[in-house]
Amino acid sequence: MKKQTARYKRFTRSRFGNAVYSIILILAGLFTIIPLIYSVVTSFKPLDELLAFPPRFFVVRPTFKNYIALPELLSNLEVPLSRYVMNTLFVTVSITVLQVLVSSMAAFVTCQVKNRWTKLFFMLVQFALLYNGTTLAVPQYLIFAKIGIIDTYWAYILPALASTMGVFLIKQFMESNVPEVLIEAARIDGAGAGRIFWRLVMPLSKPAWLTLTLFSFQSAWTATGGNLIFSESLKTLPSVMGSVVSSGLARSGSAMAVTVLMMIPPVLIYMATQSNVLETMSSAGIKD
């Protein structure tokens, strides 16, 4: 089987085409990675290299000074740095855990109960994939103001939970990967809906909710609260980062050091979940 595939591939692939492809891929790879390389390289530059004229891309004498200067630089703020760190962790973890739980439960019900209401619900979920927080900002703001969650942690958490991506991905995955017979069998053995969900369906849909964990973490980690959070004591690291980043060329080394540190958690989670993501995405199609 494998050999056949290989032989056939040579048939529709020309050597010229392959060469062109490699060049395109290398250029595209460079284009996407340059900012990343830039931020890592710059974070290790000593002051004189940061200010060097003409600017040099690569670092000559790397130093950790920019990283060491960070705590002091960041604690000149109104609120101790630990507060921002705790806020970020609290918001990110709550959003991720709650979103995975809430979306998985809704996806499970949509799978198990097929009537006109759940059909309508899933149609709306699919349609709502089009709209994100940015497009809905204005009408959402009015609702937030009405229910009084502006300038509270809820302003971070609740709107994030309403994202339909999770329900969509998990439901599609459950439809094609959780065999109905297993659920039937569990029911015959006397398991209730809650037990079936927690002990049977959730373990089987692990790739799907790990995928959601990645996406959810990624967006929660960079959430700044925008115009919904005023109190300094409720702000998160990304908003603090903004203030370091905008403080000029001499601070650009530290700005990049913060950036690099902030990049680490999402990258680690991506690496841990990557294969699950691909498995999940294969069932993510929309039927029109």
């Binding site: 809430v102 979306s103 439960m105 809704a106 499970f108 019900v109 949509t110 198990q112 109960v113 619900f121 709306l124 979920v125 709502a128 709209y131 809905l136 009408p139 959402q140 009015l142 609702i143 229910i147 609740l158 709107p159 939970l161 309403a162 339909t164 329900v167 209730g192 809906a193 809650g194 969900f197």
Partner: peptide, 22 residues
Amino acid sequence: ITLSLMMLPFLAVFVLFMIVPV
């Protein structure tokens, strides 16, 4: 009842922050 309760949290935020705004 269990199934309805499982649906409730998402349905609530979805209606409140997606449907109602639109």
